[in-house]
């Protein structure tokens, strides 16, 4: 059982949950994610760790209530218990020693970059962050990115805030002007990650994309998360989730994400589930906090 400490709505359909999970908070490294199963009947949903506080034993995740399962998660209020939170999963980001690095984030994917940037800053890198959103109302984590980057550019597709246009535009301009980066990291919708990969490819700049395929166990047991990287099948939950963006087959990834699209629209519509705190038969002690 994992207690929800706070649940704040950041924008339309976007919620920031802070959850008590001391072991995950202690072991989490930038780039790793967790899987939440909110209640007995729920799916196991992979979510990035947007922030953490190892002292308080909490992790923070920013959830876009995209469909049925994420909507269930964001219903949980402070004092409620999520049934299962497991992690940290996946390989940590290999930070290395870059002098100048950029993070490109899109939509609810942006918060996933916060801890990466923090680690890069600690490693002494100079940092550019470009975070993009559809419109002004959806802009999140601006303040936090401001604090960890040397330069922050916010873009909106409709021009209602910051730079008018897509994240690839300011990035492309910088590169065209001869700026060079040792590392570029990108997290966001598949189309955006694919576009960033194309922008950086001609310059041969190392570009890492954090992929978001459908997952089940997150331990390499099911293969649901398989992605093609450099012509080879990889399991994103154990080999990734970060891969060389220039090698990733983004088209396949976006096709695979549609696995349940037809079904999900007719998915059973349950009313709000009240999750009762029912200890499991084998549960002889509090598991994680």
């Amino acid at each position: 059982m994992f207690e929800v400490i706070s649940n704040q709505q950041l924008a339309t359909d976007i919620f920031e949950l802070t959850i008590k999970a001391p072991r995950i908070a202690q072991h989490h490294r930038p780039g790793q994610f967790c899987i939440i199963r909110a209640a007995q009947h729920c799916e196991r949903i992979p979510l990035s760790v947007a922030d953490k506080d190892s002292g308080a034993g909490t992790i923070t995740t920013v959830v876009q209530a995209a469909g049925h399962s994420t909507q269930e998660i964001v219903r949980f209020q402070p004092g409620d218990y999520l049934l299962d939170v497991v992690g940290p999963l996946g390989q940590p980001t290999h930070i290395g020693n870059p002098k100048y690095a950029a993070f490109i984030g899109g939509g609810f994917g942006a918060p996933a970059g916060y801890l990466m940037l923090k680690a890069l800053k600690d490693a002494g890198a100079e940092l550019l962050a470009i975070i993009g959103f559809r419109t002004r109302d959806l802009v999140i984590y601006e303040e936090k990115f401001h604090n960890v980057s040397d330069e922050l550019i916010v873009t909106t597709d409709d021009g209602s805030y910051g730079h008018h246009g897509l994240v690839t535009e300011p990035l492309g301009e910088r590169l065209a002007n001869g700026e060079s980066f040792d590392l570029i990291m990108v997290v966001g919708p598949v189309v955006m990650m694919a576009a960033v990969a194309e922008v950086t490819r001609p310059y041969g700049i190392k570009t890492l994309a954090s992929l978001n395929p459908i997952m089940v166990d997150g331990t390499g047991m099911c293969g649901a998360c398989r992605v093609t990287v450099g012509g080879q099948t990889k399991f994103a939950c154990v080999d990734g989730p970060e891969f060389d963006a220039h090698q990733v087959d983004f088209r396949e990834l976006s096709e695979r994400l549609k696995m349940y699209q037809a079904g999900e629209t007719q998915a059973y519509e349950a009313g709000p589930h009240q999750c009762k705190v029912e200890p499991r038969y084998w549960q002889v002690r509090e598991n994680d906090g």
């Binding site: 072991r23 995950i24 072991h27 790793q32 299962d84 939170v85 497991v86 992690g87 940290p88 999963l89 331990t219 499991r280 038969y281 084998w282 549960q283 002889v284 002690r285 598991n287 994680d288």
Partner: peptide, 18 residues
Amino acid sequence: VDLGVQISHDTVVGRTVT
């Protein structure tokens, strides 16, 4: 469990605990 065995689920050894 009745014999006293404790079970810590949601625990990936190598990740959640080392």
